[in-house]
Structures are given as C-alpha cells and as structure tokens.
Design a protein around this nucleic acid. Sequence first.
DNA 1: TAAAGTAGTTTATAAAATAAACCAAATATT
DNA 2: AATATTTGGTTTATTTTATAAACTACTTTA
Lengths: 95, 95
Amino acid sequence: MSDFKRLDPLLHSQHRLAVMSLLIGVDSAEFVFIKEKTGATAGNLSVQLDKLSSAGYISVSKSFRGKKPVTTCSITKQGIKAFEMYVDALKQYIQ
Amino acid sequence: MSDFKRLDPLLHSQHRLAVMSLLIGVDSAEFVFIKEKTGATAGNLSVQLDKLSSAGYISVSKSFRGKKPVTTCSITKQGIKAFEMYVDALKQYIQ
DNA sequence: TAAAGTAGTTTATAAAATAAACCAAATATT
DNA sequence: AATATTTGGTTTATTTTATAAACTACTTTA
C-alpha cells in the first residue's frame, strides 16, 4: 500500500483551499470579500462555494443589505474537521 | 489583488506531489518503487512522470537490469526549487 | 508452448477547473 | 427620462486534468 494519505480532492484545489483558509480564521465572510482575497473570478467562486456547500464544509446564506444581495459564508464544524485532516495529510507530503 | 500565492498546478496534484516528495529525499528511485510508495497505478504514474519530466522537474532514464526494463527517476535542481517554492506558497494556505 | 507475470505506454473516458456569457436589479450618465 | 454602467451574482460551455482501461513487448513459469 501507499505511504501517502489521500488528499481530500474537495480541498486539494487552490481556490477552494483559499476559501477554507480564509473562513477558518473568521466568523463569516461575504462573497465579494472572499472574491477579492482569493483572487477568484465571480463565476469560479460561485461554483466553488457551491461545491463546498454541497459537501457540508461551509454554510451559505443569502440576504440583502439595503437593496443589494449579500452572500455570506461560514465554515461548518464538518468543514473545520475536513480542513484539519487535509492539512494533517498534506504535511506528510511536504515535510 | 489576491492574498494567496498561486500554487504551481504541476505540483498541486496528489500523485505528482507524492512523487516529488519521494524523490526529494533520495538520490534516485525506480518506477516500481515509486508506484508502490505513491499508490498510483502504472498508467497514471507513467503519465505523471512524463509531465514532471517535460517540466524539467525530474529526469528519467531508461535502462535494463538483466532483461527487464528499469525506469529510474531523480529530481532535478529546477524540481527542488519548484518544490520548495510550492511548499512555501502552500504554507500560506494552511497556517 | 501456452499461460501468467513484469514493466511499462497509449488511448479513452470521466471529472474538474476556468472562462465566458448571461441575468436582475441598482446606480450613474447624458 | 431613457440609456449606459456597475454590482452581485449564476449558468453554461470549453478547456484542462486525472484516472482507468486497454494494449505492447518481453520474460518467466507450469
């Protein structure tokens, strides 16, 4: 068998990893903020947030501020666990 | 602009990263050994080695031991540099 | 000498990433 | 007041990547 633990493919993706990295440090963050910090395009980010959300790694809520739509994301317990396990596995590769 | 450095897509791949991780610790390694250690299938490994080799990250030499073909791989200077830069960038995401 | 094993490569398919096009509403411009 | 632009996204299409399956060439074993 392999010496290397598998890397959760949902997290082993630059943009999704950046999103998770961001969210793990804050209570919540908004779409536009995440977009700027990660450098993703809106379309790409939309897709990646969907994937993380479908996996239960983040929760996404849509509302309005005044008249503008606001998409707010937070990492879930499950997301934190998955992130930690990913980081743990990854260390095997880079140490 | 983005807070996150880009992750070299050639290295940000489970199997190729495992190969590089292995090779950085040894002088050279053979196809079959790498295959076992990384858990890749032969077909997949063949493809991934080609990519790393085309990028100049590893060098591949083919010879025979007795009558059996032996494919030997080593990491190149450029490969070491790329790996180090990748690890450095990655740390931003996981720390 | 036929079957199975070794050491891979090539090709086809599935999955993922990314970009481009689009939508709805709000705000700014002429 | 109409038109253009911006904001905040989503959807769809295209490209790229990963993976698996099939194949090649040769060797060893039964």
